[in-house]
Design a protein around this nucleic acid. Structure first.
Length: 589
RNA sequence: GGUUCCAUAGCUCAGUUGGAUAGAGCAACGGUUUUCUAAACCGUCGGUCGCAGGUUCGAAUCCUGCUGGGACUACCA
């Protein structure tokens, strides 16, 4: 509505002889209890109009109606200037949208962005927290594509370290050669089982030591299992064949399990990075930083950065024994990734528990003068809380990703079969539909919440299929496809300018927003923006559908085709928008 | 202790440059189907926007303090 802003500036100049900036013109959608489409807030103008808000609004309204063809009418209520925009304008916008291939998606903007997400540890299966991460990362990547970026999705797998050795050691000691094939367990679940066993046995040892009078902190360090795990890590780093073989075998199990879960979630990656290949990186950057005076070395030869001037503390970047810490690796990996992709932006989808880490990382990269520091962004999402509180892997209070997905599919099957609408579906079609609806419900439920906020997830309360949900939007799509099929045509040409009714206008206005919604979602890295928009769109369509016959005999050819075209575009936008959230839509449901 | 994020209806959430009487969904209650899919549509009920000040013509939104909750603050990742 840029032209309204420009004409308002003009009106203010002519009427009150005042030059104002475009930012001084506040436009908002007219609240639906009032007549009009666009509202101008004129309070700021009263300072120089020297008249009441109502008089100011009336004067501007009168000017606009005489100088802007699109302004058909106006009214003033309590100092708010409500403009009625001509139907011809909306019809024209609609026609343009229909003639735009991939309406909503921006043209390529020539910029490259990397989205790193998922980044699992290979010692346990994925849980609800990872699900949020994966859904967010995938969706944000798709949204960025929709906004014109060239996107690379990458997964940085944490496949080494003491926690991995714990699973390996427990399996070696207590596993009796158990494999996914012999146990029937999914690989990641099998490895996770031994991670839990390690913790249990380790605790026993700690308790035994404490009983002999050893202090807790010392007991944790002295426990034989911990000593053995650390020895194993050392052997791994030395390339000990036996340890490496075990590591390869067990990680292989985990990857098979992850691949299955990723496939079910519908997420994917353009490239995998493994920490076993990157954990030694970053040491040359330490040298670089020391030379540039960004880092300093302490007498024990550990290396630090002083961030007190930035309101933070001193931070270790290299241990006294010369080995890397997480920060060292991340500096090196950032450099590696930039070398591989030369991206303009780099998004890290990581939970907000690591806010401090990324703040420091980006600060360091900036101080080192890295060209990629400026484009780095930590998409910091909130934790997923259960009614019982926070999820803790070791305490078994996690919601497993595979279980959750299966429960959603089962629930969707029960719900759908109870409605009795799928009796003529064959088995294959049913399986597909239940999967689409179950995952649609889950994904929408998680993605509709602002990523930055913590969210509550109650697994016992099965996710709804009515109201503000994924299935509601999927259903709207299926309905549209049903109407289009029944029309028996695909040529929806209709005549020229004509009056719109309220529902039609509302729907067109909603559709008209789609391109700007995608940009907004991309700028804010927020699938929730798309989700809320699609809900509003589906609501507008359902209202329209309910009150406006399309295929009835009494409907004129013109109205019929116009409404079919309106339905068609709505369906396209829903499908495209849901695709940005990684949600599929069924042709029938 | 320090840093930081959060607090909106019984529940889950919208509310993005400060704008009208703070909105949805669920739950509860009521209505709509011989008519293109009722996973829908319409209505009723439900609020001290954590509390107290401040800035402003105007504050859920900005500032300060307080209360309550989370996270971070390791030679862990």
């Amino acid at each position: 509505m840029e032209f309204i802003v420009q004409k308002t500036i003009e009106a203010v100049k002519v009427l009150f002889d005042q030059n104002i900036e475009a930012s001084a013109v506040t436009l908002q959608e007219t609240r639906k209890e009032f007549e009009g489409d666009i509202t101008i807030v004129v309070f700021p103008f009263t300072r120089f109009s020297k008249t009441s808000p109502d008089a100011t609004a009336t004067a501007i309204g009168a000017y606009l109606i005489n100088h802007v063809t699109e302004v058909a009418d106006f009214n003033v209520i309590k100092g708010f200037l409500n403009l009625v925009i001509a139907d011809s304008y909306w019809v024209n916008r609609f026609k343009i949208a229909c003639n735009t291939p991939n309406f909503g998606f921006a043209q390529p903007n020539g910029q490259k962005v990397m989205v790193e997400y998922s980044s699992p540890n290979t010692n346990k299966p994925l849980h609800l927290g990872h699900v949020r991460n994966n859904l967010l990362g995938y969706s944000v990547a798709e949204i960025l594509k929709g906004a014109g970026y060239d996107v690379a999705k990458v997964n940085l797998v944490n496949d080494r370290g003491i926690h991995i050795c714990k699973s390996m050691l427990a399996w070696k000691k207590f596993g009796n050669g158990e494999t996914p094939a012999s146990s029937g367990l999914k690989g990641d679940h099998l490895v996770g089982k031994y991670y839990v066993i390690f913790d249990k046995e380790y605790k026993k040892e700690i308790d035994a030591l404490k009983a002999t009078g050893v202090a807790e902190d010392d007991a944790k360090k002295q426990a034989p299992l911990m000593i053995e795990a650390q020895l194993m890590l050392k052997k791994w780093e030395e390339g000990d064949k036996e340890v490496i073989d075990l590591w390869k075998m067990m990680n292989g199990w985990v990857y098979e399990g992850f691949d299955e879960t990723y496939k079910k979630l519908g997420v994917n990656f353009d490239k995998y990075y493994y920490e076993s290949n990157t954990y030694l990186l970053g040491k040359e950057i330490i040298e670089e930083g020391l030379q540039k005076g960004v880092f300093f070395r302490k007498p024990d030869s550990s290396v630090w950065i002083d961030l007190t001037e930035d309101g933070l503390d001193q931070k270790l970047v290299l241990r006294s024994d010369g080995t890397s810490v997480y920060m060292t690796q991340d500096m090196g990996t950032a450099q590696l990734k930039y070398g591989d992709f030369k991206m303009d932006k780099s998004v890290y989808v990581v939970g907000n528990e690591q806010d401090y880490h990324f703040k420091v990382l980006f600060l360091i990269l900036n101080k080192l003068g890295k060209e990629f520091a400026k484009g780095s962004y930590h998409l910091s999402y909130g934790m997923v809380d259960l009614p019982s509180g926070k999820m803790k892997s070791r305490e078994g209070t996690v919601v497993d990703a595979d279980d959750l997905i299966q429960e959603m599919i089962d629930t969707s099957r029960e719900y759908t079969e109870a409605l009795g609408k799928v009796d003529d579906f064959n088995d294959q079609e049913k399986v597909e539909l239940f999967r689409k609806i179950g995952l649609g419900a889950l994904k929408y439920h998680i993605l509709k919440v602002d990523p930055k906020k913590r969210m509550m997830f109650d697994p016992s309360e099965s996710i709804d299929f009515q109201g503000h949900t994924g299935p509601f939007i999927q259903y709207s799509y299926a309905r549209i496809q049903s109407v289009l099929r029944k029309s028996g045509s695909s040529d929806f040409t209709y005549g020229e300018v004509f009056p719109l009714n309220k529902d039609e206008r509302e729907l067109i206005q909603q559709l008209d927003k789609f391109p700007s919604v995608i940009i907004d979602a991309a700028d804010n890295y927020s699938p929730a923006v798309i989700g809320n928009y699609l809900y509003e769109l589906a609501k507008a369509y359902n209202k329209f559908y309910h009150d406006n016959p399309i295929l009835k005999p009494e409907i004129s050819q013109h109205d019929r085709n116009f409404r079919l075209q309106l339905s068609k575009l709505t369906g396209d936008v829903i499908k495209r928008g849901m695709g940005l959230m990684g949600i599929e839509v069924p042709e029938r449901m």
